[in-house]
Design a protein around this nucleic acid. Structure first.
Length: 448
DNA sequence: GATGGCCTAATTAGGACTTCCGGTGT
DNA sequence: CACACCGGAAGTCCTAATTAGGCCAT
């Protein structure tokens, strides 16, 4: 049952293979349910009352700082400030990256219950999940996937957290709780231009290597997300270290605060600080360079690259699985493992129950960069005939007007303003092309 | 009254951290 | 000395699966 305050947007432009789904390729993938206008207007970043919201946030920030009693550096203050913008990070774009949305053809009734297609690599769901993830290491630690057996009668095992051949729990974002895993959170940060590369950045994106530029800030963000105000890097680091055992992360030896994902989603958006895929060796001396300029890299597509651009290497040699702390593997980009290419027609799906919303109440207010990015496709949305698809049309108009109002008011789409918009535009164009051309750009397209 | 189906609340198992700790290395 | 890093141990939180019990219809 939808709550009155629930705002349900479903952005599917990144992933939908329209030809398979029977969708119309000319329409942007925006699935909309009833949008309570007043609620929408109150969402951060788009509200006319933006300044008031920010005031409140500043107040909150002050209170938090006073309570903590710790001395905050300027950087940490900025980091804490960025907490205020985190709501968008852990929801929409993650939805984009870890799930796919079934886009009904526009001949269908668009106001029908939103059907969510969740990607999973689990058996039931078929191989699509595997194709969605770019496994940087081939083998997964089988032993650690074994569950402990206890008394009682056997029952279906609860889906485990994604592991190297990452699986995504069905409906994991559908449960109301903040069921966002830490590794997902980090990936999200790495795709959030408000924090990447300022607080976290890729050092070798194609190898999945990233660095916590401001570990305190990242930990604080994580704590904010988990509602653990006392979160610190020490604690978060423990969770990260558990990922070693589970094969989700590796530690990059000899470099502080540098970790490596063993797998990456296919459609990962890489935000780099100018040099693109520079190796981690040269980032030690640019730690302090990760300032606002890094975030405002509004230049061109070279600073945001989809993973599909990333792989051109040949035969991969799967890095050894870490079996002891001393055997940490640092996989060079040339040793990445590629899953076998799969015909897109093999995509299997799991339908999300129609009664559940894609975005839970806890996730509101949300108008994320992804949402705004979808506005890039607004022209196409507005080309819809209002009569046929009124919900989409109206919502697109609404978002568009909000967007324009926001732009007119000088409020940046995200913290970096117009450059961001420009950048997103170029990137959004790519996404739009994905919608138009049903075939997803394969991460490992060159693989044969 | 017996049986079966449905619903709901309670219980339980288990995953994912979180917290604390002692220790090592840089 | 501060900080990053490591991993063991115990705890918390949350969710899904299971169970038990009540209600109703046949």
């Amino acid at each position: 049952m939808l709550q009155q305050s629930e705002l349900i947007f479903d952005f599917a432009s990144d992933h939908v293979n329209l030809s398979q789904l029977g969708g119309h390729p000319d329409y942007p993938a925006v699935i909309v349910e009833q949008v309570p206008h007043p609620h929408l207007l109150s969402y951060a970043g788009l509200a006319c009352e933006q300044s008031q919201i920010e005031e409140d946030h500043q107040q909150l920030l002050k209170v938090e700082l006073c309570e903590s009693g710790e001395e905050e550096t300027m950087e940490t203050l900025v980091a804490a400030d960025s907490l205020l913008n985190m709501d968008c990070s852990d929801t929409l774009s993650l939805e984009q990256h870890y799930s796919q949305t079934f886009l009904p053809s526009l001949g269908d009734v668009i106001t029908a219950p939103v059907t969510q297609v969740t990607v999973s690599a689990e058996g039931i769901v078929g191989p699509v999940g595997q194709s969605q993830w770019h496994s940087l290491h081939t083998e997964k630690p089988a032993a650690q996937l074994q569950s402990k057996k206890r008394g009682r009668k056997p029952r279906h095992r609860r889906a485990e957290s994604p592991t190297p051949d990452i699986t995504v729990k069905k409906d994991k974002y559908n449960k109301g709780g903040n069921t966002l895993y830490l590794w997902q959170f980090l990936m999200e940060l790495l795709q959030d231009r408000q924090v990447c590369p300022r607080y976290i950045k890729w050092t070798n994106p194609h190898a999945g290597i990233f660095k916590l530029v401001n570990s305190k800030a990242v930990a604080k963000l994580w704590g904010k997300h988990k509602n653990k105000p006392d979160m610190n890097y020490e604690t978060m680091g423990r969770a990260l270290r558990y990922y070693y055992q589970r094969g989700i992360l590796n530690k990059v030896e000899g470099q502080r605060l540098v970790y490596q994902f063993t797998s990456l989603p296919k459609d990962m958006i890489y935000i780099t600080d100018g040099d693109g895929t520079k190796e981690e060796d040269d980032d030690d001396h640019d730690d302090n360079s990760c300032n606002d300029e890094g975030v405002s890299d509004d230049s061109d597509d070279s600073t945001i690259s989809s993973s599909d651009q990333s792989v051109e290497d040949g035969v991969s040699h799967p890095p050894q699985k870490k079996t002891s702390p001393s055997s940490t593997v640092r996989a060079p980009a040339t040793q990445r493992t590629r899953p076998a290419p799969r015909p897109s027609g093999q995509r299997d799906t799991v339908l999300r129950p129609a009664s559940t919303s894609l975005i839970q109440e806890q996730h509101l207010p949300i108008v994320s960069a992804e949402m705004l990015r979808t506005l890039q496709n607004l022209e196409k949305v507005q080309s819809l005939q209002p009569t046929g698809h009124a919900s989409v049309f109206k919502t697109a108009q609404l978002l568009g007007s909000l967007y324009e109002r926001q732009a007119a008011a000088g409020v940046a789409v995200d913290s970096e303003g117009a450059p961001e918009t420009q950048d997103k535009k170029s990137h959004g164009g790519q996404k739009a092309s994905q919608v138009e051309t049903p075939q997803l750009v394969p991460l490992i397209s060159s693989d044969q």
